[in-house]
Simulated assay, not measured.
Amino acid sequence: MVGEGFDRVTRLKGGWLEARSDAGYVLARHWPPRFDVQATSEFENLRASRLARQVRQDLWRAVQNLRGFSPVVQILFTTGGLAVTAGGRVDGRIPHGIESQIQALLDDPARRARWKTWARRGK
């Protein structure tokens, strides 16, 4: 279940919610978060909160016309880096191909380069 194992949920500016644990990070608009649609991608070790915010912003821009959509980004820490799941809750009809659209967003080389620059860990 999304958000499972996250004991402390913090409210951010703008009504967003974040949860952190040793296992990962979740950024969502509603709690508990839910994935009605989702796509996953791997990243190297980056700052999870910064990466999640960038992914969430681009995800929202890409599917903002999807009625009843509420973005969720979950990042799990892996031995090789990060496993990022992006998608969210949809209150209503889920259009065909939306998961492919989210996957294309996560796999876009230009976006990935921008996200990595923004979320790179300091030296």
Score class of each variant (00 low, 15 high):
Ala104Arg: 15
Ala83Pro: 00
Arg114Ser: 12
Thr10Tyr: 10
Gly92Leu: 07
Thr78Tyr: 08
Thr79Met: 08
Ile98Tyr: 06
Met1Gln: 12
Ala110Tyr: 10
Arg11His: 10
Arg50Met: 07
Gln64Ser: 10
Ala62Asp: 13
Arg20Gln: 14
Ser70Arg: 13
Gly87Pro: 02
Lys13Pro: 05
Val73Ile: 14
Gly5Glu: 08
Gly87Cys: 03
Arg93Glu: 15
Lys13Met: 09
Thr79Glu: 15
Leu46Asp: 05
Arg112Gly: 04
Ser100Phe: 05
Asp36Pro: 00
Gly122Ile: 09
Asp91Ser: 09
Lys116Arg: 15
Gly88Glu: 03
Ser21Cys: 12
Ala83Gly: 04
Lys123Asn: 11
Glu18Leu: 07
Ile75Gln: 05
Phe77Cys: 01
Ala62Pro: 00
Gln103Gly: 04
Leu46Pro: 01
Gln64Asn: 14
Leu105Pro: 03
Gly3Met: 09
Gln64Pro: 00
Ile98Ser: 09
Phe6Pro: 02
Gln64Ile: 07
Ala113Val: 03
Ala19Val: 01
Arg56Gly: 02
Ala39Asp: 04
Phe35Val: 01
Gly5Asp: 11
Pro33Leu: 07
Ser70Ile: 01
Thr79Ile: 05
Glu42Cys: 01
Gly3His: 10
Arg47Lys: 13
Phe69Pro: 01
Arg61Leu: 10
His30Phe: 10
Gly15Pro: 04
Asp91Lys: 13
Arg111Cys: 07
Ala19Lys: 02
Arg34His: 11
Ser100Arg: 13
Pro71Arg: 07
Gln54Trp: 11
Gly80Tyr: 13
Arg50Phe: 06
Ala110Pro: 00
Ser70Gln: 10
Ile102Ala: 02
Glu42Phe: 06
Arg93Gly: 03
Ile98Phe: 05
Arg120Pro: 00
Arg93His: 14
Gly122Trp: 12
Ile102Thr: 01
Ala83Asp: 11
Pro95Ala: 06
